[in-house]
Design a protein around this nucleic acid. Structure first.
Ligand SMILES: [Mn+2]
Ligand SMILES: [Mn+2]
Ligand SMILES: [Zn+2]
Ligand SMILES: [Zn+2]
Lengths: 124, 124
DNA sequence: TTCTATATGATAATGACTATCATTACTATT
DNA sequence: AATAGTAATGATAGTCATTATCATATAGAA
């Protein structure tokens, strides 16, 4: 059985108390600054365990994985290539069309990943 | 000036003569089998150079980059999680909605990546 | 308290990719 | 054809995110 240990609870709390999309190192650094240092391997394992339990969710952005609250409805991401800001959106038409595309190609769809890249208002 | 050398021409030809989505190691292996071995570093550099020239295009799938012909119209990808088959599709409605989403969020869109995961006909 | 299973953390290993650097291949000019 | 200058090549070392290893710590169950 996988345990929700003290360390994992602290990681979960940090993720739940914001809308941030955390990467592992960033999360470890933040916890260290808040006087709760956790070994980096433990952070990685904790994130994986929490995700396996469905308590947080993740997506792969370039070469790193980002973790966010699982308590949000399905959404996709808009990313500013200048400042790295990540915005969320959901669009039913796109979701519908994805199902249609899968059907047309004889795929039983299990998931998708959509990322829109652009320059945000602040940066343009 | 970047040169289209013999090696790079061979890499380009291999990519152009198929609809495959090549990863660097796979391409190097295939060239070696065809009695045209090219050092792996040269393959990586060649692929980057060819892409910079717009002669091939690429997208990131999980932890590796895939290269394909640039002579195809824009499309996105459907991937079978069982056998790894990659199918292509394009859907104008999705493209339109992406533009709309970007506009609604104040982003000037520069690109996107959409991958649909599922199980293909053969594998289901 | 003792047993047992899992977690932890320091560190090594992995794997895709990039950097280094000595050598080679092209290209343009004598 | 020989020379010089520039870019390419390939063996190999380095990078970086992530995972594996393993000795030790910890938390519940009995
Ligand atoms: Mn979606
Ligand atoms: Mn394609
Ligand atoms: Zn921005
Ligand atoms: Zn399949």
């Amino acid at each position: 059985m996988i345990k929700l240990t003290q360390h994992r609870q602290v990681i979960l709390d940090l993720i739940n108390e914001s809308n941030h999309h955390w990467e592992a190192e960033e999360l470890a650094r933040t916890l260290a600054e808040r006087d709760h240092p956790i070994g980096i391997a433990t952070v990685y394992r904790g994130l994986a365990a929490l995700e396996a339990q469905g308590l947080i969710s993740s997506f792969q952005l370039a070469d790193r994985k980002r973790y966010e609250r699982a308590s949000k409805a399905h959404h996709d991401h808009l990313i500013c290539t200048e400042c790295g800001t990540i915005e969320e959106f959901s669009n039913d038409r796109i979701e519908q069309q994805q199902d249609l595309v899968a059907k047309e190609n004889g795929f039983s769809i299990t998931g998708h990943q959509l990322v829109i890249f652009g320059v945000c208002r602040k940066c343009s």
